[in-house]
Design a protein around this nucleic acid. Structure first.
Lengths: 213, 213
DNA sequence: CTAACGTTTGTCCAATCGGTCAAAAATTGC
DNA sequence: GCAATTTTTGACCGATTGGACAAACGTTAG
């Protein structure tokens, strides 16, 4: 009785290494030019191999993109998964913001690739958005609602809260060139990250902490 | 003595109408497929004319894109320009958020086109970001700083405040498909907008209002 | 050493792309 | 109505694209 999920085909050592090399190169290329804007030649160049050689490891351009997308989504949702029902609400949300911001800093190409896909209407990952993603968000929204009912944080819409955390943190990856252009060269990447972390923490914590009146 | 700025060439009535038709079609196509992902044929189809005919009005594909970008930037910055030094700080910021959110609702294609350009490194509008945009943001940041010094709003980083307003509002245009996928079909576009407006208002006003202790 | 298998390359192809051009058709000014 | 001008079209072109393929090359197990 075979498992329902697709079994990854057996691969040689060289195949594993080269596939990894190609995916790394493809991430670089796809994330800056989008799917249609990227060519197999560009990816092959970036990976240091010829086009037919690349096509030996991935038969179609789409296969590379899809493999990349599958991996991406797993790591992308990890920070939200960690949001813990039993933790302190304010600390949990602060932690989530920080983890999300760290991902924007450490994996900007993944963020841009994802943004590109969504911008174009998510033609390849729509089922995942309506399935896995929606389920996860609904589940966490319920947790946040519990915190609100308990008076731990101010009553507001948990879905839009999650959206606003996504938006503000990913902004520093997706709109990086704009952020840099506006802030000027004075403050380096590290400083920008610290400033952003401090600002977002203040905004969300003050915006969510229960206020007397 | 001629003016420094480029004088728009004289055009016939048909030229004005057809150029407008093309730009409208191009906005639709470019905003969903990006520059490289869009073809002249697609735009010509959407505009209801043949490719050579389209090329009679715009000699190159880039010309269409650049014309679109120029117009876009003007309307895009309008909401921030309206931020008024002499107004009530909280009301001014609330008004800015609302105007920005209304733009995301009413001009989602423009928002996505802009996002696409920035995502790919802003190759065609970088000078504008470092020039006009930076100047405007710096000027408004100074106003916000004044409000902070006067104790009207909590002391925080005005640049990152502006970024976070951009990020949260534009999110509803750029990531619309994701928002819809997560929220489900229950709540229509109008309801989503109202919820988002109420949430963001709460977040930013509570997050920025001076708090005692 | 050698046969089997895995890897790499050069060459080629059909489709699509942005763009040209000359001629036909429509419009306009007189 | 007619000539000048503007607009539209079909045919075409060179470049680029994703991908196929067979032959050459490397590697490995017996």
């Amino acid at each position: 009785m075979s498992s329902q999920s697709t079994v990854p085909p057996r691969r040689t050592r060289i195949q594993q290494e080269k596939r990894e090399l190609i995916l790394e190169a493809a991430l670089e290329v796809f994330s800056t030019h989008g799917f249609r804007g990227s060519t197999i030649d560009q990816i092959a160049d970036a990976a240091g191999m010829s086009k037919p050689n690349l096509l030996y490891y991935f038969r179609r351009k789409e296969d590379i993109y899809e493999t990349l997308m599958e991996r991406l989504l797993k790591t992308w949702l990890a920070p939200l998964r960690e949001l813990d029902d039993s933790g302190d609400p304010i600390a949990e949300i602060r932690g989530y913001i920080r983890r999300k911001l760290e991902m924007a800093r450490d994996f900007p190409r993944e963020s841009r690739l994802f943004a590109n896909e969504i911008l174009q209407g998510a033609p390849r990952i729509m089922p995942l958005l309506e399935g896995e993603l929606k389920e996860l968000v609904d589940e966490k929204a319920e947790i946040i609602k519990g915190w609100m009912r308990a008076g731990k944080i101010v009553k507001t819409d948990p879905w839009h809260l999650i959206f606003s955390i996504w938006a503000t943190t990913q902004h520093y990856a997706d709109f990086d060139v704009q952020v840099r252009a506006v802030l000027g060269p004075d403050r380096g990447a590290e400083g920008r990250f610290e400033d952003a972390a401090r600002f977002l923490e203040n905004l969300f914590i003050h915006g969510l902490a229960p206020h007397k009146d």
